[in-house]
């Protein structure tokens, strides 16, 4: 089976990997790059557990062919912390227990980061819209919303 050579910036590092035709970016990240933070919850783009940022846009990586990411800049949950220092979103999810089983957490963190990058002071409704592509079966979402609000406050320096 043909394998495509892919070069991308993943979590700030120039990264090269091979992917078989038909391999999703999610599987390439997990199996070839060794980044298992993004999860497959459905494989059909419905749950958002595989969310990564590709060139600053939230994307369900299970629906992207790996070669489509050639030349792109990719951020996964593993790239959120800055040399061991948790991102404020990570810190607020941790402190607020905005997670239970944790499978959806990487996707929520990525989607929330994409929101705060564009809108540092979102309303609760805007947060719900921005996270509408991510399913969580454990928390009931309330603690997730509070954690995003708290992180936004911290990032604004309030």
């Amino acid at each position: 089976m043909a394998r495509t050579h892919i070069t991308a910036v993943v979590n700030g590092d120039e990264t090269e990997f091979l992917a078989e035709d038909g391999t999703s970016l999610l599987n390439a990240l997990r199996d070839e790059v060794g980044l298992t933070g993004a999860k497959e919850g459905c494989g059909t783009g419905d749950c958002g557990s595989c969310s990564v940022m590709i060139d600053d846009k939230v994307t369900t990586s299970c629906l992207v062919f790996a070669p489509e990411a050639n030349g792109a800049t990719i951020l996964t949950v593993e790239g959120l912390a800055d040399s061991g220092q948790l991102h404020p979103l990570q810190q607020c999810f941790l402190e607020g227990a905005a997670l239970q089983c944790g499978i959806c957490t990487p996707g929520f963190l990525i989607a929330a980061k994409a929101l705060l990058d564009k809108n540092p002071d979102p309303t609760e409704t805007e947060i719900r819209y921005a996270l509408a592509g991510n399913l969580c079966r454990c928390t009931g979402y309330d603690k997730i919303i509070r954690a995003v609000q708290e992180a936004a406050r911290e990032m604004r320096g309030q």
């Binding site: 298992t36 959120l80 990570q90 941790l94 402190e95 997670l99 944790g102």
Partner: peptide, 19 residues
């Protein structure tokens, strides 16, 4: 107290069976 599993779950380090 913070959940004992929270750090690994927010950093992507938590290893599930599929990982």
């Amino acid at each position: 107290p913070h959940r004992v599993d929270a750090f690994d779950k927010v950093t992507g380090a938590a290893a599930y069976a599929a990982d």
